[in-house]
Design a protein around this nucleic acid. Structure first.
Lengths: 226, 226
DNA sequence: GCGCCACCATGACTGAAGTCACATTCCCGT
DNA sequence: ACGGGAATGTGACTTCAGTCATGGTGGCGC
């Protein structure tokens, strides 16, 4: 696998406009780290060290309550960047990031990276674009959470995965616990709602294998909002 | 009042790094528009025309369901910018914006503005910073909505207003309806919770005048989460 | 003063979500 | 194959948010 720092950086669309020399400069100052599934890259509230690049693996951006409930704000698979926000606004990390696969990450020092942004306006514009995506995603999350039911969010999520798979059946990769965290609820509620969908004939679940039996029905469940 | 376009632009921190010529250039291409309270500047889903500057007045960024429930994502008072997101990522407006005061706004054409960003990397960095703020705000919103009760959010909001006022009493400027929209709920729930707070002796409400009677108690209500 | 209208209070009811407790099943390594 | 930890299914119960309906109150114009 591509273990060279510079190769890892080159894989990012975000850095497409940088030339070899610039990439090399960033790579030189970058610190590489490895993580196992479940390891913490950093915790909410800590001061920001720099820009993180997920070069291999994947990580989740997570908010956790003292009682242990979790909300997954986003999942970032390689190659991608995390912790852009605090790099640019100087504040602490707004959420924690946890590896969900064995992960290889690079840490770009803040000052160095900001300097590069000044030298390459296109770089900043790309980040602006990335921020836009994030913002949209969060707006959608907030909307669905305040207006919708879990049932709707679950239906939506299942449909989305089916679309990714291209057919109306797929394997759940997550545990129900993790799915619950993504949807902002708890395990039991997921289990129950899956059960209901099944009882209503919209779905068939066998182990982790999901088959959508009544796509139209499920879609109408997901739709009720907006 | 300051009715010159260029003066209006100069008032924004975001544009602090631009010199007179650059400001003038932006101002020349800008379109000025006026709105009354309740007017919509634009609706969610419409294609983005450019960057909006709230030069005078104030506006709310709002998501609305077909059933008429509203969620206020943010309130922007002059001088500030709205609709940054779609300017940079090219998508449609992610939410609607409505004037909540008589408002004077400028529309900067997208291409022209993006050109300025390329010429002035500092400008892009400032927007990156502004995006960071928005992102943090939305993360907080999502967190509070998924984990907290209305009671907590209300307590938090009251405390925040009291802090702004500097003393433990203040006037509610909003109708309960509007407050409800900001907290992501409906009028009745606000009314009830205010009633409870009052019954519990944490608060006294007279007309729109609010007096916090037991600050510590209210704070402990707000605290239950992170 | 009268009446209209927006705003606010409150009760009754419904349903969703969260919590606790426990049973069951699955997966994995030795 | 077995044993144990993790993951899942379910029931009982509580609390909170949302909806509907209804009545009160205050402000404002004429």
């Amino acid at each position: 696998m591509g273990r060279s720092k510079i190769e890892a950086l080159r894989a990012l669309d975000l850095f497409a406009m940088l030339d070899g020399g610039q990439l090399e400069q960033l790579a030189r100052g970058a610190v590489a780290k490895e993580y196992e599934t479940g390891d913490v890259l950093f915790l909410e509230g800590q001061p920001c060290q720099g820009l993180w690049i997920i070069a291999e693996g994947a990580a989740q951006i997570v908010k956790t309550t003292p009682q242990g409930r979790q909300l997954v704000l986003a999942t970032q698979a390689a190659p991608s960047a995390v912790a852009e926000v605090p790099v640019f606004d100087g504040g602490p990390y707004p959420a924690s990031v946890i590896a969900v696969q064995p992960t290889w990450a690079l840490l770009l020092l803040k000052q160095e990276f900001l300097g590069m942004c000044r030298a390459q306006p296109e770089l900043a514009l790309h980040f602006l674009q990335a921020f836009g995506k994030r913002l949209r995603h969060l707006v959608g999350l907030a909307e669905r959470v305040t207006f919708g039911t879990i049932r709707q969010r679950l239906a939506l999520d299942l449909l989305e995965r089916a679309n990714l798979a291209g057919v109306d059946s797929f394997q759940m990769e997550e545990t129900q616990e993790q799915l619950a965290a993504r949807l902002g609820t708890v395990r039991e509620v997921i289990s129950r709602n899956l059960g209901r969908f099944q009882a209503e004939g919209l779905l068939r679940v066998e182990r982790r294998a999901v088959v959508i039996a009544d796509r139209a029905g499920l879609e109408s469940e997901a739709a009720t909002e907006l």
